[in-house]
Amino acid sequence: MSEAVATSPTPSGPSTDQKLAYEPHRKWYRRPEILGPVAIVIAVYAVLLGVEVQPGRYRSAFTADGDLALDWDYFFHLIPQMLTGAYVLARATVLGFTGAIVLGLLMALGRRSQFKPLSWVSAFVIEFVRSTPLLVQLFFLQALFRTTDVVNLSGVQILVLGLALHYGTYTSEGYRAGINSVPDGQWEASTALNLDPITKWTRIIIPQAVPNVLPALGNNLIASFKDAPMGGPVLAVPCMLFFANTIRAEDFRSVEPMLLIGAGFLLISIPAAWGLRRLEERIEYER
């Protein structure tokens, strides 16, 4: 009996039902509305990490008629190959963004560092990488790895590295904004309570910063998905755009493959953005 009292406060008064419905202070892993999306994200990650599709050569099964009007049969028979390209694209994006999350944290920590030169250097690196095109950075990385014999990276690996670097700077800005959004009073209170730095960060700052950081991270994930097709023409990563270019070069038909990848891309990115917005609303902290 006494155990039951200790774990759950005895219900008293008419507000019991309300209390059961509103429990913001359960741990996040005990809240199904957060656990569900997290499980989905982890599952998608696991599939993308585990299963690597090696697309063969992209080619059409038949050529459409000579005239340039849209040929729907030709259009539809290209769909499976387009999906393969989309999968390659999604895999590169997810890998690159995983790197970006880690790199971004390092850059954000570097920028917050008390040691001034480190802070200046990271601020400059962030600003430089952020304001130069990813395309040029990919070309640069490619040239860099071609000139050195030490490391030999494939096209996909360079794309992943480039995305991680470029979007690492974006995520670091997200982290910084999230940490800065924690009110000063919280910092002062944790100093006043004499909390050690670990407790301060893990129990006070990070739990309050996460709801502000997650939307930024999600936006960056979608933005990196939108930049990833660059790997096709630059690094010959067999992604969607590479597929369309191959078909265009072989059949001299550009309308169908281009429109197909446009439609396919929108069918992935718009639901992703929409789902993200829903998730944002759910994860919004009850303060």
Binding site: L70, K226, L241, V255, F265, S269, A273
Partner: peptide, 25 residues
């Protein structure tokens, strides 16, 4: 807005340059 924000700028560029002129002659 959903279209412009959803589509990749590079894919949009390729569609504009390679597909639209042929499609609409």
């Amino acid at each position: 807005v959903e279209f412009a924000r959803g589509i990749s700028s590079i894919i949009l560029l390729f569609i504009m340059v390679f597909a639209i002129p042929i499609l609409f002659d």
